[in-house]
Amino acid sequence: MSGKVRITIDGKAIETAAGEKILWAALDNGIYIPHLCSIRENHSPFASCRLCFVEIEGYPGPVTACTEGAAEGMAVRTRSERVDRLVRTGFEMIMSNHRTECGVCPKNRSCALQKIAKERGLRLKPGRLEKLDRNLPVDDTAESIIYDPNKCVLCGRCVWTCKKTGSGTLGFAKRGFDRMVTTFLEAPLGESGCSGCSACAEACPVGALALKR
């Protein structure tokens, strides 16, 4: 599996490690593919945000770039009618569940959602869909970070980071629409054994976990 392979992304010839996920091969070469949940060091991708769809020649339908390994001669297209449609709907769904208050959000201008919207010409309003605000309480009990679950897109980057470099406090709880990032027994962060390293705030792409200003 080691060694280099040659693939094309949007017509651009790219040399990359065999098995390297298309998402990283593209990003390394300056080709943007929308993504929220992927972490390069994580070798079993979550594949949960469903935004990094691409077309690969010979495949029946769009696939997620974060799970597809590069193989010799692969021809990838980051845009197509089907891809654009899926990304648009997926993004709309995420926006319908994300409390949008960019004006006062610490992530304003560095937010992954804003970047996706800009790159793909999408709107931050959920368009065809109704807003589903969950109205959960904001947790500001921790010393250095503030957690607003209403902004959370459930990408899981904070959970992964907390496990790797933090105190392993964060995890997922509940299921379906109620799924959320929280602590053991849903204790407030300040009482949860959080070490206050704030690695999660750094990992969060959307400002759900952010440093206190």
């Binding site: 945000c49 769904m93 319908s96 109704e130 509940k174 299921r175 379906g176 629409f177 799924r179």
Partner: peptide, 21 residues
């Protein structure tokens, strides 16, 4: 299905919720 969705991926978690709505 909306209640039984695990909630991991966007389309199932939010998509079924919107369809139900």
């Amino acid at each position: 299905t909306q209640k039984e969705s695990c909630g991991k991926c966007t389309f199932c978690r939010l998509g079924t919720r919107h369809m139900l709505g």
